[in-house]
């Protein structure tokens, strides 16, 4: 009887090495995606950082993504990886005296950049201010969504806000994974395949310019823009952060195109160009108008200038 009891105990005894092996395998399996764990999931999981990818790596990644997107959206996508042009540093100007608050820029941006329609996402927010009032006095009566019959409303002015593409961006410093960085042409970009969705960049952004995909973004097939850039308007995933990229898929082309918001503005309030080109319109505005930048005291050095032309 005693022998039988001893044998039972021994049969249940796990050796330390076996236990450690099992525990290591178990922990490793927890760290890996499961469910649809086909080859592309693994490739995506162990994908290199965009800035460390060789031309071949980029080609493979783009091919994989184009396939994935084609399957998910039933549309053929073209994902570009156009590099920044040397000698270019993009800057943006906004004439506050001209803006009428029509929000055409908001929806042009949505259409161009494949922003989610459900839940709705806007990279540009247009703020309505009462003329002559100090900010501190309007806390209690401020309206988040102004909706008058016609714009501009009497006695008001408008201030569209989007990513300020700071020269000293707090969002880049705080990102734990380097999923967001500043490109040589001044655009702050996000790699949606590296973002862990911690939203530290959103908490750190003084301009409230970043958006999080709280649920799976939805864009219908008819509304999709298939001309995309890896760092810009390619379809995003649930749980990642996104933001304005100065329409990187347009502005980095040769010849470059204006961002969608600049193109659509009916009153010409939006200016865009190369800050390093002394003959550019944006340089003219900066040198000849009364320009200001938002929250200059924070030393984020936005490349987004507001001015009053008249």
């Amino acid at each position: 009887m005693d022998q039988k009891k001893n044998r039972d105990i021994h049969s249940r005894h796990i050796h330390r090495r076996t236990f450690l092996k099992g525990a290591a395998l178990g922990l490793a399996s927890m760290a890996l995606p499961f469910g649809t764990a086909d080859a592309s999931v693994w490739e995506a999981f162990f994908q290199k950082h965009y800035r460390e990818m060789s031309a071949d790596d980029k080609r493979d990644v783009i091919l994989r993504m184009e396939k994935e997107y084609a399957k998910a959206y039933d549309t053929k996508f073209n994902i570009k990886t156009t590099k920044p042009t040397p000698g270019v540093n993009f800057g943006y100007g906004l004439d506050v005296s001209r803006c009428i608050g029509c929000r055409r820029c908001v929806y042009a941006c949505v259409n161009e950049n494949n922003q989610s329609r459900d839940p709705q996402m806007h990279w540009i927010t247009v703020l309505e201010f009462k003329k002559g009032e100090r900010w501190v006095n309007v806390f209690e009566e401020a309206k988040k969504h102004y909706n008058p019959e016609t714009v501009p409303e009497e006695g008001h002015f408008y201030l569209p806000v989007q990513c300020q593409q700071c020269e000293n961006p707090p969002c880049v410093k705080v990102c734990p994974t380097q999923a967001t960085w500043k490109e040589p042409d001044g655009i702050v970009v996000v790699d949606y395949n590296w973002c862990i969705g911690c939203r530290y960049c959103m908490a750190a952004c003084p301009y409230g310019a970043r958006r999080f995909n709280w649920a799976k973004p939805r864009v219908s097939k008819e509304e999709l823009n298939p001309e995309t850039h890896y760092l810009g308007n390619r379809p995003r995933y649930k749980g990642v952060v996104e933001k304005c990229t100065f329409c990187i898929q347009r502005t980095r082309e040769n010849p470059g195109r204006y961002p969608a918001c600049v193109e659509i503005c009916p009153v010409g309030a939006r200016k865009f160009g190369n800050l390093l080109d002394p003959k550019s319109e944006i340089r003219y505005c900066i040198e000849n108008k009364r320009v200001f930048r938002l929250k200059e005291d924070l030393n984020t050095l936005p490349q987004f200038y507001y001015f009053f032309a008249s």
Partner: peptide
Amino acid sequence: VGNPFRAMKIPFLLRNETS
């Protein structure tokens, strides 16, 4: 976080020392 599986790569594969 939005991507907990990806977050498990910290600090082995994902890192930003200024964060």
